[in-house]
Amino acid sequence: MTAPPLGKDLVGLEDLSADQIRLILDTAEPFKEVSERPIKKVPALRGKTIVNLFFEASTRTRISFEFAEKRLSADTVNVAASGSSVDKGETLVDTARNLEAMRIDMVVIRHPSSGAAAFLGDRIRSNVINAGDGQHEHPTQGLLDLLTIRDKHGKIAGLKVCLVGDVLHSRVARSNIWGLSKLGAEVGVCGPDTLMPRGIEELGVCRFRRIEEAIEWADVLNVLRLQLERMEMGFIPSVREYYRVFGVTAERIEKASRPLTIMHPGPMNRGVEIDSRVADGPHSVILDQVTNGVAVRMAVLYLLAGGRPELADAAKGPGTGGPE
């Protein structure tokens, strides 16, 4: 038995090497095809039990994980925080121990506290996959962003990718910064200083305060969601002004000297951080991101379960892609 290629848990891209990230992306390639089949199911994780433990509301991430699990034939249980024992004051560690006692194989956790996934991973034997912990990381989102960029541009190294918006509160931004830098991209960040972590430049990113400059610099814009409660908390004066100063608008994109790939982790606030004409425009890969999310999550689940990367193609089973 060789050592698992990723370790026990996937907590964040900060912890992974460039080779490990490439391995996940390469493993995702054969899994893309599974979702294109009429019968979208392979037996790779048959008999494995996976708990999707969501302490925060999430639609697309939870559904994407659930599709990935089901298409690999795993048995899945969804636990949402509302209405569960978590609401009754059960601690995270008790939740973990109870799940472990039911002899599960993997936990996919979404939690409002940074570090919750690492906390759980350190305390249970099952594999833990971070589906977003507070403002720390959202590694599978980072991976699907990388895969989408690689699909579109054929490479990642040497590209200039700018994250636009609320970097301070964004776990997507942190996973993107680690993943992109490790694979050799140049990373920029653009937004008001109120929404930037102090010391962000020390992570090796370029800092832009004007959206026009970021657009002129970048090959790819990854536009982050602006949580509307940030305005109530006083980080920005108004949504209207934010759109006027930082909005990714068609007019601004048209001035760029080269075509820009447009990404967004969703859900979008149309007319707040991004103009609908840009989101739905010819250079938007926003829906490709969603499609790739399933393949990337299949790859992560498969690798953490001990699947051998060189067999990922074969793991798809005897299916020919045609109806059976």
Binding site: G134, H136, R198
Partner: peptide
């Protein structure tokens, strides 16, 4: 503490 470590960990800092 608000600084590079808090930025990396995604924890709210105290300047």
């Amino acid at each position: 503490h608000e600084g590079l470590v808090s930025a990396r960990l995604g924890l709210k800092g105290i300047p």
